[in-house]
Design a protein around this nucleic acid. Structure first.
Lengths: 222, 222
DNA sequence: AAAAACTATATTGTATACAATATATATTAT
DNA sequence: ATAATATATATTGTATACAATATAGTTTTT
C-alpha cells in the first residue's frame, strides 16, 4: 500500500473531524484558530482551510470575524437529518439492487460479521461507525450514482456523531444487529421493496432511539 | 437596508460563482490562484478559501498540488443531479403544502408574474434563475426543514449552470412557463399529490431538454 | 447608577515571503 | 532516436507578519 502524502490541511481536517465525531470537541464550544494551530504544530492557514471544509460537511459553523464552533443539532434537526437519509438511501438502495454484484453482497456479509464481533469490544464506537458506513456503502455500490453516494456520506458523517454518542452512553443501537441481517437477506434474495422498507425502518428506528436518548439527557440538564 | 461589509473571501466566492454559472469561466479550464488574485486585487489566501467553498458547492474541483478547475458535468451526472432534485424537492413540497400560508402563495404568484415578463428581456438568464429559485423556495417555505432547504439550494446552484446555458443557447426551457402556472394552481387548491407530480415532471422535463441540448452539442464537437 | 464613548485586548482576515510539489525543459545514457 | 535522469520553471502549500474587526473593560457623560 502506497503511503499517501497529505497536505497539512487534509491532516487537520481528519484530526478535527475525528475530535468532533468522538465528542472530544464539544458542540457549541468555540474553535480558536491560534490554539488549534499551536496544538497541531501548524500555522493558522491550514487550520482555517480545514474549518472551511468541515463547515461544508456540516460539522462546523464558521461566522466571519466571530470564529468557528462545532455545530449542534437540536431534536428537530436530528429528525430532519434522519428522514432525509431514509429517503435518499432508500432510493439509492433500490437503484443499486437492480444490478448489484454477488461480489459486493459477499463483501457486505463479511463486514457484517466484523460488525457483530466489534460491538462488545473496546473502542467499539469508532470501529463500529466505520464498519457500519462500509456496510451501507457496499449495498449502494450497484447504483453507480457517485454524486448521490457522496451526499449520503456527508449526511452520515453528521448522523455519525449521534450514533456514536448513543453507542457510548446508552450501550448502542439495540436493534441494529438483527436489522442489518434482515436487510442483507432481502438484498441477497433481490426483494427490492422489502429491502428498501427494512432499510428505511432501520434508519428511522435508530432516529427514534437517538431522539429518546437526547430527550432524556435534556431533561437531566434542566 | 444596511450595507453588509463582507470579507474578501466572500466577495471572491460571489464573483467566481457568478463567472462559473454564467459560463464566463469555462468548465475544465484551470483556475490559477495567482492570476485570479491579481485580477481581483487580493492575495492568494482569499482566492484559495473561495475555491474551497466553491468546491463544497460542487462548482469547482480542487486537487492538492495540482490546482482547481470549474467542474464539468457529463450526461450521467446531469441525470443524477436532476433526479435527486426531483425526489428531494417533491418530498419537500409535499411537507410544505400541509401548512403553507396564503401569504407565501400570494408571493409565489407575484414572482411568477415577474418570471414570465423577464423571459423576453435582455439579461434574461441571470434574473430568470434568481426568480426561478425564489419561486420554488416560496413553495417550500411551509415545510420548515432548514437543512433540506439548504441542500436543495446547493443542488440548484449546480443545476443552474445548465439551465442558464440552455436559456442562453437554445432560447430557454420552453415548457417552464405553463408548468409553473399549473404547479401553482395545484398548490393553491392544496392538491398535494397533483402538485408533487407536476413538480417532479417539471424538473425531469427540464432535465430532458438540457440533456438533449448537451447531446446535440457533443455531436457537433466530435 | 445607567448609558454612552472610549480605550485595550483578543481574535480573525489577508498580504507577503518562503517551502514543497508538480510540470516542462534540457541533458545524459543506452 | 528513445528512454531515463537531471535541472529549471511554474504553481501550489504554509509560515509569518501585519491589518481589520469584535469583545471586554474602563472612563466619561447624563
Amino acid at each position: 500500500m502506497a503511503i499517501e502524502y497529505k497536505t497539512r490541511t487534509q491532516l487537520v481536517v481528519e484530526i478535527l473531524r475525528e475530535k468532533i465525531l468522538s465528542g472530544e470537541i464539544v458542540a457549541g464550544q468555540p474553535l480558536r484558530q491560534a490554539a488549534l494551530a499551536e496544538e497541531l504544530n501548524v500555522s493558522r492557514i491550514p487550520v482555517r482551510e480545514a474549518l472551511l471544509q468541515l463547515e461544508a460537511e456540516g460539522l462546523v459553523s464558521f461566522e466571519p470575524h466571530k470564529g468557528a464552533s462545532a455545530t449542534e443539532l437540536n431534536l428537530d434537526q436530528v429528525d430532519e437529518l434522519f428522514e432525509l437519509r431514509a429517503m435518499i438511501e432508500g432510493d439509492l438502495l433500490a437503484a443499486s439492487l437492480v444490478d448489484i454484484t454477488d461480489e459486493a453482497l459477499a463483501q457486505a456479509t463479511e463486514i457484517l460479521a466484523k460488525l457483530d464481533s466489534a460491538l462488545g469490544k473496546e473502542n467499539a464506537a469508532n470501529t463500529w461507525s466505520e464498519l457500519n458506513s462500509a456496510f451501507h456503502n457496499c449495498l449502494y455500490s450497484g447504483a453507480n450514482r457517485p454524486q448521490t453516494t457522496d451526499l449520503v456520506n456527508i449526511l452520515n458523517k453528521n448522523a455519525d456523531r449521534y450514533i456514536r454518542m448513543h453507542l457510548l452512553w446508552a450501550g448502542g443501537i439495540s436493534k441494529a444487529g438483527p436489522e442489518h441481517a434482515e436487510l442483507l437477506a432481502f438484498c441477497q434474495s433481490r426483494e427490492i421493496d422489502k429491502a428498501v422498507a427494512k432499510l428505511k425502518q432501520h434508519i428511522l428506528s435508530s432516529r427514534d432511539e437517538i431522539k429518546a436518548f437526547l430527550q432524556q439527557r435534556e431533561q437531566l440538564n434542566s
